[in-house]
Nucleic acid binder design. Structure first.
Length: 578
RNA sequence: UGGGCCGUCGACUAAUGGUAGGUCAAGUGCCUUUGGAGCACUUUGUCUAGGUUCGAAUCCUAGCGGCCCAGCCA
């Protein structure tokens, strides 16, 4: 940065290097490959989702790695749909995946489908048959499993393993032509039935599937397996660093085997640890189950860890990217605390979300000595973290709403908010002192009466130097906008939702209180025209995001994340909470 | 009990034979017209046992513990 001015102290540190983000083993591999010129200085990656579900925060980690690392070294990243199984894949998903990747803030260089390579893959299969490296097997799925052996015992060769090249060629061609029913035959690689790695025990390359494919229609009735398609797809795109999750480690020898037999571009597979988050499930199958069994309203339910879900919840792409950068990447199997994610959401929203006053559970306040029909426009700061955000006017009048939580008839220890005889500040309003309460038949406080001090206009400290221990928020009753607010808690009650009692599945850990709908919220009038998906901080409460369910005149807000709440902590610690 | 991978504060992650550091969480204090934000400080860690070395989280050996693999899913 400033080489002409070497540091005068701290000579123990090489301060010429600015404190860089800690590296990780993948970046180290790329750096090394660049140094040895393994790929002529190129870095090519790919993000290879299967279009059979919506992307979730776990994919966000992969996306940030694939795109981020390539970008860092001037490389390129392809989006490639891994669509080798027509029975599970749909166009709906490819559209959502593209939208999600873009929303996260990335743009791909090439857009491909594994199905683009079906012709080439077929030719290569023929080539392997001719080389005596692949054969058509007539064994049933069941028999193949039996012949495969077990974890501790080697497998046996299929009786069809030694067919002639001519016979294999003819049979494979007839498989392609549709002469055989589903499941009747497969094409297998001829490797080693005794390998300790089960993936090398003559893995299936092609299966017969008379199914319509979302891109190739009815052109094919045989489809390549993942192992036969993925490495070659990488190779065709000259992918240099093919990142995937740990469970594919055992597949790497096979990935390399096909590439070597075919003598094609040597892509290299690098495995990293999948993201796990406490209190959340990141398995497409299980997320699909939540949707299908109606435990949530859809893939974009704000409680879902899908990108569409957390987007609707109010999370920002920046927050997610910062989070992914902070958690790093390794080969350790662990679980990130949800609090970490929430930290990055708060950190980002704190800087950008306009502040606004909203009362979720209203309690009526009457200021007895305030003139009956008077309305004052109070100045309120839009964002104390951002001087450019400006100010706005908030109407103040004799009857207000405050939060039920902000009043206690008998205040517990360390409770500083309103209670009989106590004075607090109404933010940007006045100091008020509680003089009396009105109760209903059940003895619940339904109305609080106060007096205000005109010398504290704007919420300022009075000339006499009087101070107050608490500032609370409010909304003028006559000017309030009615709104619905949806409060979310963790979808699951257990850190690991998969940890269940005997005979139960993860749905037994669903949190019955994960959604609370508040239908009587009162908002300050500036929120009248809040746009869908816009985000606000409701002062002292949390960050909230406008839901698409909003109707004109009746907005719906989702709570993105609550503010850190010191009082809640104190109260939780107190044994006899009021 | 075959093969592969992995063990560093409560969580995640650095240190690449040479000061065990950062972030989150937790706690304490300061500040505050958000009990927010911010600032300062604090607690807690190299799985175990041997070995190599002037020096080991790092290298070696042996244990222990965890995860993954027996789909014609990816």
């Amino acid at each position: 940065m400033n080489p002409s001015n070497p540091p005068t102290e701290a000579a123990t540190k090489p301060t010429s290097v600015p404190a860089a983000a800690p590296s990780n083993f993948i970046r180290d591999i790329i750096l090394e490959d660049l140094k040895t010129n393994k790929y002529n200085g190129l870095v090519q990656t790919r993000f290879p989702p299967e279009p059979n579900g919506y992307l979730h925060i776990g994919h966000a980690k992969a996306i940030c790695l694939d795109f981020g690392l390539a970008d860092e070294f001037g490389g390129k990243t392809n989006l490639r749909f891994d669509d080798t199984n027509p029975s599970k894949e749909e166009t709906e998903y490819v559209d959502s995946i593209m939208a999600d990747v873009r929303w996260l803030g990335f743009e791909w260089d090439g857009l491909f489908y594994a199905s683009d390579y079906f012709d080439q893959l077929y030719k290569w299969a023929v080539q392997l048959i001719k080389a005596g490296k692949a054969y058509v097997d007539d064994l049933s799925a069941d028999e193949i499993r039996q012949y495969r052996g077990t974890l501790t015992e080697p497998g046996k060769n299929s009786p069809y393993r030694d067919r002639t090249v001519e016979e294999n060629l003819e049979l494979f061609e007839r498989m392609r032509a549709g002469d055989f029913p589903d499941g009747s035959r497969v094409l297998r690689a001829k490797i080693d039935m005794a390998s300790p790695n089960l993936n090398m025990r003559d893995p299936v390359m092609y299966r017969i599937l008379h199914a319509e494919h979302h891109r190739t229609g009815n052109k094919w009735c045989i489809y390549p397996m993942y192992d036969y398609a993925h490495g070659q797809s990488d190779s065709l795109e000259h992918v240099t660093h093919s990142m995937c999750t740990l469970e594919f480690e055992d597949h790497r020898p096979l990935y390399n085997w096909f590439i070597q037999q075919l003598g094609i571009f040597p892509s290299q597979q690098i495995e990293f640890d999948r993201l796990n988050l406490t209190y959340t499930l990141l398995s497409k199958r299980k997320l699909l189950q939540l949707v299908e069994e109606r435990h949530v309203s859809g893939w974009d339910d704000p409680r879902m860890p899908t990108l569409v879900g957390i987007r609707r919840r109010g999370y920002t792409p920046e927050a997610i990217r910062n989070f992914v950068g902070a958690i790093g990447v390794s080969k350790t199997n662990g679980s990130i605390e949800l609090a970490m994610l929430e930290h990055f959401v708060r950190e980002d929203l704190n800087k950008r979300a306009p502040r606004v006053m909203a009362v979720l559970r209203p309690l009526k306040v009457v200021i007895d000595n305030y003139p009956e029909n008077q309305v004052e426009e109070m100045d309120a700061v839009n964002n104390p973290e951002d001087p450019n955000a400006g100010t706005r006017k908030v109407p103040f009048s004799r009857v207000l709403y405050i939060e039920q939580d902000d009043f206690r008839e008998v205040p517990p220890k360390q409770y500083f908010r309103l209670s009989p005889g106590r004075e607090v500040r109404l933010r940007y309003g006045y100091f008020v002192t509680c003089t009396s309460v009105v109760k209903n038949d059940k003895g619940e406080v339904i109305e609080v009466h106060c007096t205000y001090d005109p010398a504290t206009r704007g919420g300022n400290n009075p000339p006499d130097g009087r101070k107050v221990k608490s500032t609370i928020h409010w909304v003028s009753a006559a000017h309030a906008i009615d709104a619905e607010v949806r409060i979310y808690e963790n979808l699951f009650t257990k850190e690991d939702p998969n940890q269940t009692e005997e005979g139960q599945d993860f749905t037994s850990n669903l949190n019955p209180n994960s959604l609370e709908v508040l239908t009587n919220a009162k908002l300050e009038p500036s929120l009248a025209d809040a746009a869908i998906e816009s985000r606000y901080q409701f002062e002292r409460l949390g960050y909230f995001c406008v839901d698409p369910d909003s109707k004109t005149g009746r907005p719906v807000f989702n709570r993105t994340v609550a503010l850190k709440d010191t009082w809640a902590k104190i109260e939780k610690r107190q044994p006899g909470k009021a």
